[in-house]
């Protein structure tokens, strides 16, 4: 084996990906060739140093605890056999829910998703109708009733009006409703008299009770969103007393730009 052949196999050699035969051939060459030996040693050293210097972090305890706790919460729903009750109760007592019941619609939907894959029922569960009926309407001028909100929330999603860039992203992630979970996205639309009133997205942020709903005002419009530092879980914006849209999972600034474009098109 000459240097050229040896160098070609050097990476595989260092990564121990050669067959025994090839390995001995390279080894033999390295014993005779100081130049190639130096390179091989250097590659080995690089690998060693990189792994030593970049692999020291241990997961923080609070994150470990959080994971264990969240898994317990997932199970709690499964154990009672009535996950919707459990989930919606736990979410409903958060103060922001009362402020904007569209969030509640979404949360109901999330609870519905739980119900869907745990109980296998496709309609609007009775306990949700009951709970939702008691909630104040977020947009008093709207002619869309709470009941209709609910029905629409549970109807088939039709994201056709959503810009393609967002839609593509959503479709990839929502392909498998059965296995919906944190990290996935699901788009829901609803309409009234043939006019689309709302579109929203539920995603992983909704599963985190620590998230707060925040209001942003832009060009006189209010936008509500669950926001993390960089990303936004979903946003609603209202116009003529109706929710116009909710969009998910993009940086807050992009979202507001996008929202203003859509509102401008009306």
């Amino acid at each position: 084996m000459d240097c050229k052949q040896a160098l070609l196999k050097l990476y595989d050699y260092v990564d121990r990906e050669l067959s025994d035969n090839e390995y001995s051939e390279v080894e033999e060459h390295l014993q005779q060739c100081k130049h190639c030996f130096g390179k091989a040693e250097f590659l080995r050293l690089t690998k060693k140093v990189v792994s030593e210097k970049a692999a020291k972090e241990a997961v923080p305890d609070y994150l470990k605890d959080r994971i264990v706790r969240r898994i317990g919460q997932l199970d709690m729903g499964a154990r009672t056999g009535n996950p919707g009750e459990e989930d919606s109760g736990f979410l409903f007592f958060r103060p922001w829910v009362g402020i904007l019941s569209i969030a509640a619609v979404t949360i109901l939907f999330v609870a519905g998703i739980f119900a869907l894959f745990i109980e296998g029922s496709a309609g609007v569960p009775g306990y949700m109708v009951e709970k939702y009926a008691k909630m104040p309407h977020p947009y008093p001028n709207s002619d869309v009733t709470n009941q209709r909100h609910l029905e629409l929330a549970f109807s088939d999603p039709d994201p056709s009006f959503v810009p393609e860039s967002i839609r593509n992203r959503a479709q990839i992630l929502s392909a498998d409703l059965e296995n919906f979970g944190p990290g996935d996205m699901k788009f829901v639309t609803y309409e009234h008299n043939g006019h689309l009133l709302a579109f929203y997205c539920i995603d992983r942020y909704l599963f985190d009770p620590g998230n707060q709903l925040k209001k942003h005002t832009f060009n006189g419009q209010d936008y509500y969103c669950y926001a993390s530092e960089e990303g936004c879980s979903f946003v609603s914006w209202s116009r003529n007393g109706c929710v116009d849209a909710l969009v998910g999972h993009m940086p807050v600034t992009d979202l507001i730009t996008y929202a203003s474009q859509v509102v401008g098109r009306h």
Binding site: V59, L63, R66, I67, R70, I71, L74, N179, G181, P182, G183, R204, F207, S228
Partner: peptide, 12 residues
Amino acid sequence: DLVQETFLKAYR
């Protein structure tokens, strides 16, 4: 976030 989601998804 990513770690948490990974484990929740793994659990599912």
